[in-house]
Simulated assay, not measured.
Amino acid sequence: MPAPASPRSGQLGPLLVSCRLARGWSQQRAAAELCAAAGVPTLSRHEVSRWERQRRVPGGFWLGWLAVVLDVPLVVLAEAAAVTRRAVPTRATRATGPGRAPRAGAAAAGRTGPRRTAGTTRGGGARAMGTG
C-alpha cells in the first residue's frame, strides 16, 4: 500500500496519523499491533500519540516495526523521521530559541551537579551548631 501524502512537507507525525486512520485504527490498536509484531509489551498508546504530535521521533527499532505494521516502505518513514528531526526544535533550542536568552541557573553557570555550601545539610536546612 503506498503511503498517503503528508500534509506538512513530509513530516512523520501527520504521515503516521494518516496511515493509522486509513486502517481505521485507534492509537490503542496501533500500539497493540506494534507490541504484537515486535514482541515488546511496553509500547503504549501514549507513545504513539507522542510520535503523532511530534513530541518524540521513534528510533530505528520502532520505525522498522511501524513500516511492517502500517505496510509503508521503511525508507518513506526514515525520510519523514529525518525531516521531522530537522524541523522540530529540540528542548534545548526551544529554551534558547531566537530572541530568548539562555536560562539562568546551574547549567548556564557551567555547574553540572548540586552545589553544597558549608553549614547546610543535604536537605538545605541549617546544621545544629553545638558548643563543645
Rank of each mutant, 00 (worst) to 15 (best):
W51A: 03
R53N: 09
V40W: 14
A31S: 13
V83G: 02
T131I: 07
W25T: 07
P114M: 07
A67H: 00
G110N: 11
G59Q: 07
R50E: 10
G132V: 09
A30W: 03
L15R: 07
A106H: 07
Q28W: 01
S44H: 14
G130T: 06
V17A: 05
A82H: 06
W62A: 02
A108W: 02
L16Q: 02
L12D: 01
S9L: 11
A38L: 09
V88P: 04
R85S: 13
Q11I: 04
A80E: 00
M129Q: 12
S44I: 00
S18D: 11
P58M: 06
Q27C: 11
G132D: 15
A31F: 04
V57Y: 04
M1H: 13
R8V: 15
S18Q: 13
T117K: 09
V88A: 12
L63G: 01
L77T: 01
A108K: 07
A82P: 02
M1W: 09
S6E: 13
A81D: 10
T42R: 12
L12G: 00
G24S: 08
S49E: 14
G105V: 02
T117G: 14
R20C: 03
A92L: 14
L70K: 08
A128M: 05
L63H: 04
A128P: 07
W51V: 00
A32C: 03
W65N: 00
A108P: 01
P7D: 15
L43E: 08
A104W: 08
D71T: 08
A30S: 09
R20T: 06
Q28M: 00
G99P: 09
T131D: 13
T131K: 11
T117H: 09
S49W: 05
G110H: 03
P89T: 07
A126H: 08
F61C: 03
A92T: 15
A109Q: 06
P102R: 08
L43S: 09
S49I: 00
T84D: 15
P98Y: 04
D71F: 02
A5P: 06
P2S: 15
S26T: 14
A81Y: 04
A87G: 10
R20S: 02
L34R: 00
A104T: 08
S9P: 01
A81I: 03
R29Q: 13
G105F: 03
E52S: 04
P89G: 03
V75K: 10
V69M: 00
T93F: 11
G10E: 11
A128F: 10
R20E: 00
V76Q: 15
G39F: 04
T121I: 05
Q54I: 01
T112D: 09
A95C: 06
T90V: 10
R115W: 05
V40M: 15
A108Y: 05
R86A: 15
S18R: 12
G124R: 07
E79Y: 08
R8E: 15
R94V: 14
T120P: 00
R85T: 14
A5V: 08
A95D: 10
A78S: 14
P14T: 07
A37G: 02
G124I: 05
A92P: 06
D71N: 12
R23H: 14
L12P: 00
T131C: 05
R115L: 13
C19S: 10
G97T: 03
R20M: 05
L66C: 10
L63W: 03
L43N: 10
S49Y: 05
R127W: 11
A109S: 06
A80N: 13
G13S: 13
L15D: 02
